[in-house]
Computed example of a mutant assay.
Amino acid sequence: MPHHFFPAQYSTLSSAALQTHLIESYQLATDTTCRLLIRNVSDTYLLENSKNKYIFKIYRNAHRKLEEIKAEVALLNALKAEGHSVSFPISDQHHKQVQQFKAAEGLRNGVLFSFAEGKVIHDLDQNHLDTLGKSIARIHQTTATIKLADPRPSFNFQTTLLEPIATLEPHLKDMPEELDYLKEISNRVIKKIESFDTNSFSTGYCHYDLFPKNFHFDEAGDITFFDFDFAGYGYLINDLMSFLNHYFFHQLNNVITKEQAAADFNAFLKAYQQVRKLTADEIEAIPYLGICFHIFFLKFFYDNFDDFSNPFLTPKFTRHRIDLIRKWETMYCNF
């Protein structure tokens, strides 16, 4: 049979070819190297030379359409313009911030980002928590006031509870108890949050993945945020909720005591409120949004099974993730 071009679903762009292309497009130093760091939700490459480092991210079209990428770029440009410390998009010699590549599966979009100096710190001390809380509050002061021209995801009951459970129903056909639990607890979450004065809740663009893996501290204690891939519009306390997940997993892994976790999160909240005040209802609602977060990401794993979650989205994993929701409910919620 004659050989012919066969369509692909998810290709990996050559580091060597990207190196040549990006050096030319961005007029980088000729000693710049390029290597693949992560083949994951998106593909991430590290570029470095004797003076600078950069991160180049290639998005999957099935995960992020061009309009969503343009919105992420615009959000980061706005944050940089306001003086926030974020990994920001870099323009090429033609002033473009989104590159396009004709890959085997079709067009793929990529963005070159500044490198976030420093390192991930999982065990945050009081200085780290103070810096983190105040920095996120300042970012929220900006993201509460801007409107992006292009769409980003919205975080609400429809997108984090109702749609995910409807999508997951075929996946859970052999797990009726787990499906019933998700339906039942989503109804309780909706009723609980509707009992709060949500009209007083601040809304805007939130990171929605505020784990220590997505911000670096340098030796001077300064912070830089990155990976705004899941950034979307919703209650700003969603960011405080996603950070609370750090302590949830830390406790489950026996890294920290329940008492210390509570003290650390409260220190973070105190620092945040030195810049932006929260209502009592906003603070009380944080844990209930955590259930939305876990159900949202279970749908994400399911939606991206072909390209991302195929190795681990087994019945055992699914039951484990739903069991995490039960543990979260026990640890944080009071219906």
Rank of each mutant, 00 (worst) to 15 (best):
A263Y: 13
C292E: 14
F265A: 03
L298R: 00
A263S: 10
I283E: 01
L298A: 12
Y272H: 01
A261L: 03
N238M: 03
L289F: 15
L240W: 05
S242H: 08
R276W: 11
H294R: 08
I256L: 11
I256R: 11
D281F: 11
L289P: 11
L298S: 03
L269K: 09
E284L: 10
N253V: 05
F297I: 09
I286E: 06
Q260T: 08
D264M: 10
N245K: 15
N238Q: 05
Y302M: 08
I237M: 15
F243T: 09
M241A: 09
F301Q: 13
D239L: 00
F301L: 04
Y288L: 06
A267K: 15
Q273N: 05
A261I: 01
I291M: 00
D307V: 13
F243K: 07
F249H: 09
H294E: 07
P287L: 13
N254G: 05
Q260L: 15
A271L: 09
D239A: 11
L240N: 11
G232H: 05
E282K: 03
L252Y: 13
F305T: 13
V255P: 11
D264P: 05
V275H: 08
T279S: 12
F248I: 02
T257F: 04
A261C: 08
D307E: 14
F249G: 09
A261W: 09
V255Y: 14
Y302Q: 09
N254F: 09
V255L: 10
D307R: 12
E282D: 00
Q251A: 02
N245T: 09
D306Q: 12
Y235S: 12
L252E: 15
Y247W: 01
L236A: 00
V255M: 11
G232M: 08
F300R: 07
Y302F: 14
Y288W: 10
Q251R: 13
N253M: 02
L236W: 01
F293I: 03
D264W: 10
Q251G: 14
Q260G: 11
S242K: 07
A285D: 03
L289W: 15
Q274C: 08
N254M: 06
